[in-house]
């Protein structure tokens, strides 16, 4: 074909990178679900504002750590993926 088709199977490193991208996509969804959890507490036995605040800040920190762990390999993926596009931009 004129256009190189994306390979169906990937070597180990590329495979890992794809799964990290998947992780980066799942993280906000997970975060959203967990952030909505206090809503469910409200109906049955509140934890009190202090408890909710503790939960939310711990969750927040967890999200930040997870994003930080994912960001390094993703940055590499972004550079590689750039190819010609970014090269042109950085040269100017």
């Amino acid at each position: 074909m004129a256009r190189p088709r994306a390979p169906l199977f990937l070597e180990r490193e590329t495979y890992r990178r794809r799964r990290i991208m998947d992780g980066a996509r799942v993280l906000p969804v997970l975060g959203f679900v967990l952030v909505l959890l206090p809503v469910l507490w409200t109906s049955g036995g509140r934890q009190g504002t202090a408890g909710e605040a503790t939960y939310l800040f711990v969750l927040w920190l967890g999200l930040i750590l997870a994003a930080a762990l994912l960001s390094r390999p993703l940055r590499g993926a972004l550079r590689r993926d750039d190819g010609t596009g970014a090269g042109k931009d950085t040269s100017r």
Partner: peptide
């Protein structure tokens, strides 16, 4: 309103944590 103020910062947090979805494309 108690903890409600935190929503204003949780929303952006989720958007940034999920940068691979939308922000990446937007910036590109």
């Amino acid at each position: 309103s108690g903890l409600e103020f935190i929503t204003i910062y949780l929303g952006p947090t989720l958007v940034f944590v999920g940068w691979w979805w939308l922000l990446r494309k937007l910036v590109r």
